[in-house]
Design a protein around this nucleic acid. Sequence first.
DNA 1: TTGAAAGCGTTACCAC
DNA 2: GTGGTAACGCTTTCAA
Lengths: 321, 321
Amino acid sequence: MARLAGVSRATVSYVLNNTSAVRISEPTRRRVHEAARELGYVPHAAARSLRAGHSRMVLMPAPAVPVGPLYSRFLSELQSALGRLDYTVVQYGTVGRQGDEAARAWAELRPVAVLVPGTGIGPQGVAVLKRAGARAVVTLGPERVEGAHALLMDHEAVGHCVGAHLHARGRRRVGVVVPEEEGLEAFSRPRLAGVRQALRGTDASVTELPLAYTEQAAAELAARWAGSGLDAVFAYNDEYAMLLMRALQDEGLRVPEDVAVVGADDLMLGRLLRPRLTTVHIELPSGRELAELVDQAVRDPGAEPEVRKVLGAALVRRESS
Amino acid sequence: MARLAGVSRATVSYVLNNTSAVRISEPTRRRVHEAARELGYVPHAAARSLRAGHSRMVLMPAPAVPVGPLYSRFLSELQSALGRLDYTVVQYGTVGRQGDEAARAWAELRPVAVLVPGTGIGPQGVAVLKRAGARAVVTLGPERVEGAHALLMDHEAVGHCVGAHLHARGRRRVGVVVPEEEGLEAFSRPRLAGVRQALRGTDASVTELPLAYTEQAAAELAARWAGSGLDAVFAYNDEYAMLLMRALQDEGLRVPEDVAVVGADDLMLGRLLRPRLTTVHIELPSGRELAELVDQAVRDPGAEPEVRKVLGAALVRRESS
DNA sequence: TTGAAAGCGTTACCAC
DNA sequence: GTGGTAACGCTTTCAA
């Protein structure tokens, strides 16, 4: 490299890293800096981490499906928090790879920590990553994975508080929307299960309602509504709730008199609908909190994997139920 | 490494990379594969790209602000398309760094191509990246950057077609919402400028309306509406349009009789509002198309930078204007 | 068919 | 203060 500053590579390294252990003469420093600028020199991250034997890279698989505003806010918060702790966050696009194959692809980058949302990894995958030098593997999902720290996101709780609420409001025939879009099962299944659990042992029934996110699908579902006898619906989230509520209203059904509609995620749009949408406010962990957990785990890789419940679900009653 | 398969490192490399130039005996292959599995061996990406002198990494800065459904769809499409061409897409979280500093940080990773949305890079940054071995730099933004391929996203066109539409509908006092949220200026400014341009030389006036994405801010704006004399508003996008339209309606104003409301992005929610929201349908380049452009550029780095207009804007008239 | 060795860009460690 | 040297893990060239 910039040996054409007339100095050795080691000297360059010292100057550019401001190594305090050795003193470099001012003129030399200047020459090095000058040469670096002139040549447009930038250090080679791969070489550096190869030599160092570790990096400060925190790897996250990039979500394959477009993800809601809630989660993307959380993501960018997390990124800046980790950035402040001097980690580099990298979202890695793992195309078609599944499970352990994906884990191996991630391991090739030798990240110091890996954050895996959903059910994208199993115990074997965790083991691969750890052998590859990852000092922390953190999952964000419905259940813990052997060997990894876990941030438990209990989406059943979301469904549960909706079920309990609807029952308390006297509803007995509850429909639950299950989106047909791919990649949402990880959330929709537990939400449905939560409703079921809340209503188990009561006189209320739960009906699963597959629904694609199109006006037509919603209209068809609404057209069948009268015959279904359902008096309430948990619409998966606020966006599906808006879609379905509109279709129900267009069909002449009154919300909430004929049918109660409940969304989830507490998005702005729920407040703007008429009737205002009852929803579930979801409290995700702050990016700062998760960043600190990662940092802890990296500093002390031997520690017992931490398991923490991080999803707060609170029903926000408005006018639609 | 796995020399404990009883063979040399070279042999391992051959086997695992399926190098066709040399023939390795079946038993040896087996032993290597077995040892690799047993040890949980995964190749070291840094070492590989260091030796090879290049990688297949396509780098994109991770958006710092939560980004709309339109753009995230485009992103994931692009990711899979590039994945199919055997590139690895990496979103790199560039925290606070600005301009050339950011470019230097990206260059450290020695990506084969860099995709930069917005105005995140200048000619110098492009030069740094190219010197660092990037064979293609592609910007997605309002204007081209010296030395880089450009996908021109002309958001002025969005504003322009709204301005023209409103004028044709007889509106003469047009408000344009400019979000107060950070990171949106890159879109809101050109959209405003487009409206101005469309109405320049006519008898219509354009008024800038700063608006935060809160109910209260919208209510305040709506309360001032009667005194403003505005008979139309371009609300930046469908979400701001929904917010503002609700506030206007709550204030007793009729849409579109008293005030026409136009959104943009053609989101589902616009179709669900009543009155149905007039909007601008935005056609982004397909991920496949962009992936091919990147691949082209990587294969032929000497070629003249390509400049392509990729943002199609078409007004979708519904009921709100 | 296999093994040995060089070298990619860094940095830590010793001599100078 | 400064400069040479080795080593990180891998691929490739060349020799056995």
